[in-house]
């Protein structure tokens, strides 16, 4: 919905910075009104076409509780500059949405950025709460996302770091050497999404049996349910039913 806004941006009500459309991420194209794509749409809205966008990059000031998002961003950009890295190269975009700060990081700089986030005294994100994979087949060239939530106990802050990799080259550097807790989390994400974490000490399947084929939580992997006969009627598996999304 944010993506439907004009490129000029809307006035920032309740401290939410306006979104710039050019950086918003298209994740799917919705046709029709009710999402019913395997049955006749009799509503008359069948011709509607709408691109669904995830919120795009935000403009300064980022806000946050007590202006802390600006503080974090300033510190991170300053610290990266000190290390001789141009912040714009490492940080693809900074998104503030629903009072949460997200840094989209270029994958080749992920380790350095994470190290800075962990070690810089003004940042000190000591606790990584693991990685969550998301598969956006509609986001061409950036299909696989790895989302990290970093928590700073020192400053009581939480940020999100997101990296993406194309489906054709599903490689992301591993953060296990920085955050050993990511060991199992990265194995889980590999198991479910096929994201390969380079530098992980033992990237093997963790949830599924070792000889499992495919990566079950990707969008192109079927749910795998079977049709059920109930009182003589066949009820298809949840992913085979008519739906409204």
């Amino acid at each position: 919905m944010t993506g439907d806004q004009g490129s000029g941006g809307r006035p920032s009500g309740n401290n939410v910075p306006s979104a710039r459309e050019d950086t918003a991420e298209p994740i799917r194209v919705q046709k029709g009104m009710f999402g019913a794509n395997n049955g006749g749409d009799t509503s008359g809205y069948g011709g509607l076409v709408r691109t669904v966008m995830l919120p795009g990059a935000s403009a300064r000031p980022y806000g946050g509780p007590g202006g802390s998002f600006d503080e974090i961003a300033d510190e991170l950009e300053g610290a990266l500059e000190e290390q001789g890295l141009v912040p714009e190269n490492a940080i693809e975009k900074t998104v503030v949405d629903r009072d949460e700060l997200t840094f989209h990081i270029a994958r080749e700089h992920l380790v350095q950025v994470a190290r800075t986030l962990r070690d810089d005294p003004a940042l000190r994100f000591e606790l990584c709460t693991g990685v969550s994979g998301v598969h956006y087949p509609g986001d061409k060239g950036r299909e696989l996302h790895a989302v990290y939530h970093l928590r700073s106990l020192t400053h009581s802050r939480l940020i999100r770091v997101e990296v993406s990799a194309p489906d054709a080259d599903p490689h992301v550097p591993s953060l296990v050497e920085l955050y050993p807790t990511n060991d199992w989390h990265e194995r889980e994400t590999y198991d479910f999404f096929g994201l390969i974490f380079d530098g992980h000490p033992a990237l093997t399947r963790i949830m599924m049996p070792d000889d499992w084929q495919g990566f079950p939580q990707r969008k192109d992997y079927p749910l795998g349910g079977i049709a059920i006969e109930y009182k003589g009627a066949q009820i298809p598996a949840p992913d085979q039913r008519r739906s409204y999304s």
Binding site: M208, L223, G225, I228
Partner: peptide, 13 residues
């Protein structure tokens, strides 16, 4: 008994 609500790839039905 039947897989219950977890009618998916992971559970024996």
């Amino acid at each position: 008994s039947s897989g219950g609500m977890f009618n998916n790839y992971a559970i024996v039905q």
